[in-house]
Amino acid sequence: MVNFFYVNNINTLAKTARARQVYENDSVLKKIFSSHYQSLLPDDMFLTRIIKSDSSLIRKVLFFLFFLIKLSSLDKKFYVYSRNLYLLEVARKKGFKTVWEAHDLPQGRNKDSLTNLSQSSYFVAISNALKNKISEVYSIPLTNILVAHDGVDLTSYDKFRDLNKVDLRNQLGLPIDKKIIMHTGSLFRNRGVELFGVVLEELSDYIFVQVGGSNKDVTFWKKYFNKYSNIIFIEHQEVQKLIKYQLSSDLLFYMTSKNSPIYWCTSPMKAFEYLGCGIPIIASNIGSLSEIFNETNSVTFDSSDQNSLINALQFVGKNKDEIEKRSKQALVDVRNDFTWEIRANKIKIFLESCSNH
């Protein structure tokens, strides 16, 4: 059995996608590796838990000291697994096997850290596009890089799945006499939010419900779309309530833009949450999103072409049976390939194979 040490200086209680991803990983990896699992997160220690900011220099120093202490107590047979290249570089110098979980190409001094680790470590990339790019830029053998997309905890969706939409909407204060198209998550500018306007025009008989986004962004977009009466903005929700919102919708909308610096390599948790709803999805499939959304599990469009989105919206209106078929396939896809537990098992099998080399 592989010995696994998971370390990240990320506050898992924060309301960010990164925090959620680390929390979900820690929870399921602990289950998969069982007694062979160790971890170090800021939440584990009082001195780092009380400093909420991931960018705090004091917390970084304290966390690094705790990391060194932890390493000194571990057998060198442990794989040290992290999103932090510097911590891995330190662990490698101390004789540990290391695994970097890559979410983008490294920046700044992290480029040097990856260069130093490139021929002596293993890697987990969140998309095929990122795997291929890392291999190309840093001359890393493809066999040393596992692709493990992010995932979703389907049990959280299954417990609400059979609830009636009318009951859900009554609980949430949403209209029951209108169809709802929904987007959940952030509202960063130049990431495709402008496309809401196309949806509002084409699906004028729907209510567009936006859940989440910072107060500043919500204020901006409320003003931007103030001529429309069929859009509702709802503040950020805790996970269980967010799931109820998603399941209460008739359509889920996913957009991104080539203006996003990570559109080409991303593996957003929201994509798998959408698939896990078993509800029709209209999704941009540019970049690495094409590894997730396709013409069997969603209706896709090119976010750089408004006509492409219009065609997708019209397709939904004219092909009810096909849309229902695709939404069922979305749930099959996520159950077969994109749960956190499946992801953790992939990592375990990959490291076991590495140990046999």
Score class of each variant (00 low, 15 high):
Val332Asp: 04
Asn336His: 07
Ile323Gly: 00
Trp340Glu: 11
Gln329Ala: 05
Ile347His: 09
Leu331Gly: 08
Lys318Gly: 01
Glu322His: 00
Lys346Cys: 09
Gln329Asn: 10
Ile342Ser: 11
Ile323Leu: 05
Gln329Leu: 10
Arg326His: 01
Asp321Glu: 07
Asn345Lys: 14
Phe350Ser: 13
Thr339Gln: 08
Asp321Pro: 01
Ser327Trp: 00
Thr339Cys: 11
Ile342Met: 12
Glu341Val: 07
Leu331Thr: 03
Lys348Gln: 14
Ser327Phe: 00
Lys346Asp: 12
Arg326Met: 07
Lys318Asn: 10
Glu341Thr: 12
Asn319Ser: 00
Glu324Thr: 09
Leu331Met: 06
Ile349Ala: 14
Ile349Thr: 15
Glu322Ala: 00
Asn336Leu: 04
Ala330Gln: 08
Ile349Asn: 15
Lys348Glu: 14
Ala330Glu: 02
Asp333Asn: 12
Trp340His: 13
Asn319Tyr: 02
Trp340Ala: 12
Ile323Ala: 03
Thr339Val: 08
Ala330Ile: 01
Lys348Asp: 12
Asn336Tyr: 01
Arg343Pro: 13
Phe338Gln: 09
Glu324His: 08
Ser327Ala: 06
Asp337Phe: 14
Ala344Cys: 13
Ile349Asp: 15
Arg343Leu: 12
Asn319Gly: 05
Ile342His: 14
Ile347Pro: 08
Glu324Asp: 11
Lys320Arg: 03
Leu331Cys: 01
Lys318Pro: 04
Ile323His: 00
Ile342Cys: 07
Lys348Val: 09
Ala344Val: 13
Ile323Asp: 04
Ser327Tyr: 01
Asp321Trp: 02
Asn319Pro: 03
Glu322Ser: 02
Lys325Asp: 08
Asn319Thr: 01
Gln329Ile: 12
Asp333Ser: 10
Glu322Met: 00
Asn336Thr: 05
Val334Trp: 01
Asn319Asp: 03
Lys346Gly: 08
Lys325Met: 07
Ile342Arg: 15
Asp333Phe: 09
Ile342Pro: 12
Arg343Asp: 13
Lys318Gln: 06
Thr339Lys: 13
Gln329Asp: 05
Val332Leu: 02
Arg335Tyr: 01
Asp333Tyr: 04
Thr339His: 13
Ile347Lys: 12
Phe350Tyr: 10
Val332Gln: 06
Ile347Ser: 08
Trp340Phe: 13
Arg326Leu: 03
Arg335Asn: 06
Ile342Asn: 14
Ser327Glu: 04
Asp333Val: 02
